[in-house]
Design a protein around this nucleic acid. Structure first.
Lengths: 76, 76
DNA sequence: TAAAAATGTTGTATATATACAACAAAATGA
DNA sequence: TCATTTTGTTGTATATATACAACATTTTTA
C-alpha cells in the first residue's frame, strides 16, 4: 500500500478533481480513486502528479503513512 | 514511458535477477521485464527497488532518459 | 434557497503489471 | 569442455489501474 497527499496538494491549490485530472491527462474519476486510496497510481502517473505539484515524488507518495500537517508543523 | 537503471544497479551489486527479485518480493522474470523496458513497475515495486538499492526513487526511475554513466562522470 | 458544480458510488470494459511454466540461448565456473 | 547458472522468449492466467457512464449526495455559489 502506498500513501499519498494528492487531495491535500490539490485542495491547497484550489483545484477540482477535473482540473487536476486534465492537467495530468487522466479521467477525473481516476483522481477520486487515488484520493480515496482505492488503488495506487502507476509510476508514470505518480511522476506526472509530483511534477505538476512541483514536489519530490516522496513528498507526494510514500510506502509509509505521512505525518499529518499538524505533526509536521509541530516538529519544527 | 519510464526509464530505469535497475540493470545497472543490480549488476553493480553482482546480483542475479533471481536474487534481486527475492529481495523485493517479485518473480525473477518480472525483473527481466523491467530491465528490458517491457513495462513499468508499479509505484509500490518502484519504491521497494529504490529502497533496496538505497537511492532516491528519481535516481532509479525517470520519465526522461538517464545520462549514461560516462556522461555522468564526465559532467564532474 | 434554487441552481450548478463537485464528489461519491456502482457497474462494465480495457490496458497494463505480475506470476508462473517451459524451453532455448548465452554466460559462468568447475 | 561439461555442467550449472543466468538470461531471453513465448504463452497463459490473474490482479490492478484506468476510462467511461449513470445517478445520488454533498458542497458551492448566484
Amino acid at each position: 500500500m502506498i500513501y499519498n497527499r494528492i487531495k491535500l496538494l490539490r485542495t491547497e491549490k484550489g483545484l477540482s478533481r477535473k482540473e487536476l485530472a486534465d492537467a495530468v491527462g487522466v479521467n477525473f474519476q481516476t483522481i477520486g480513486y487515488l484520493e480515496r486510496g482505492d488503488y495506487n497510481p502507476s509510476l508514470e502517473l505518480a511522476f506526472k502528479l509530483a511534477e505538476f505539484f512541483d514536489v519530490p515524488i516522496t513528498a507526494a507518495f510514500s510506502p509509509r503513512p505521512f505525518k499529518s500537517l499538524a505533526e509536521h508543523l509541530a516538529a519544527e
